[in-house]
Design a protein around this nucleic acid. Structure first.
Lengths: 204, 204
DNA sequence: GTCTATAAACCGATAGAC
DNA sequence: GTCTATCGGTTTATAGAC
């Protein structure tokens, strides 16, 4: 049995991510979460703003864990980035182009209208950037370049999500993934560069 | 004297771009446009949906012209892409991180909820991609690679806009711009590659 | 903690005078 | 073409029984 509070957060994450903050109603959330309207104000007395902020931070944490898991399970950071873009494309297709980044829609909506929520999205992006930077540094890249590569990679991923959802195909994710992966492999110290060649065994 | 219809479209472009579709009300638009509520339904009898679709297509056309102008005025395509990212960063700063891509917020909001509007955003993105592809081909890049490079460059730009608005700095645009420019310069035929060296004269 | 009823404000949209 | 009054519906949020 999933607790009501968690059911509300799961549902709000899905709906805010797909339709945005203003486009998602409290009634819609409780209906889909099979909860009472009173429950949402019981667990989130701050109302819609509080629910949204907690949703941003909760889904941000889950996505952070995904980033860390995919990067850490790969044989090297280049392969990890490649895997992440491939997995993202698969997820977008599996959800019929509905679920891509859990916070990007909200981030654009609130950037100029709600300072608390803007800061929440900034904090989440920062956590993802730090996770990526840290692993690029472990692969031998200097801190400043690791930070810039992370900003570049996350930008390409986020923008590819925008294009993919609008175009209903994953061409942008495929293209962004292959160029970003190439740039990161080029940035690695020569001794640690690896590349899967046509004759290699598939790794998964 | 600016006509009422144009004043409404200019205002809706600004507000939809900054706050999204659901987050912008008809009353807010007419108030800021200094028009009567009746006028909006006179010029856009289809209501909010029609206004938004025309806004997407109109602002998309204006941004297309900007893309074409910046790319065509540069000495070569690499410099043009570099200039575009620099100009985008300047614009974002000048508007206090409010105006970046005119349609990205709407695109994410409507991708899974309004098929007509989704198609409008897809059409606009397609027009931008075609403009970029065409110029990459003129620079000697094969059509298929030109298309993939355009998808990659636009993805990086769009995602950098998301991060920049959320973080309230242009680090993402700077990083994305420099890596995208480098990738495109690498893709050019050796004979047409140009790079500004430290000793060169500034071109503008 | 859950549920329903409802308040108070706001939404998109329409009617009709001018 | 412009303006205002207003309709009907939905929104967020609260009250209070259970």
């Amino acid at each position: 049995m999933v607790a009501t509070r968690a059911r509300i957060l799961n549902t709000s994450s899905e709906l805010f991510g797909r339709q945005g903050y203003a486009g998602t109603g409290m009634n819609e959330i409780v209906a889909k979460a099979e909860a009472a309207l009173g429950s949402i104000y019981h667990f989130f007395p701050g109302g819609k703003d509080q629910l949204c902020e907690e949703t941003i931070r909760a889904s941000g944490r889950i996505y952070l864990e995904l980033i860390e898991a995919v990067l850490d399970e790969a044989s090297d950071i280049g392969q990890g980035v490649d895997d992440f873009f491939s997995g993202a494309a698969a997820q977008v297709v599996a959800t019929d182009f509905a679920d891509a980044c859990p916070i990007a829609t909200i981030a654009l909506e609130v950037a100029s209208t709600n300072e608390d929520l803007r800061r929440a999205t900034a904090d989440v992006f920062e956590s993802w950037l730090n996770a990526a930077s840290q692993r690029l540094e472990q692969a031998g890249i200097a801190p400043l370049q690791a930070r810039r590569l992370s900003l570049f990679a996350l930008s390409a991923l986020e923008g590819a999500f925008v294009l993919s959802r609008a175009q209903r195909n994953v061409d942008a994710i495929d293209a962004a993934g292959s160029y970003v992966t190439a740039v990161i492999r080029e940035a690695l110290p020569r001794s640690r560069r690896q590349r899967r060649e046509p004759g290699d065994e598939p790794r998964n």
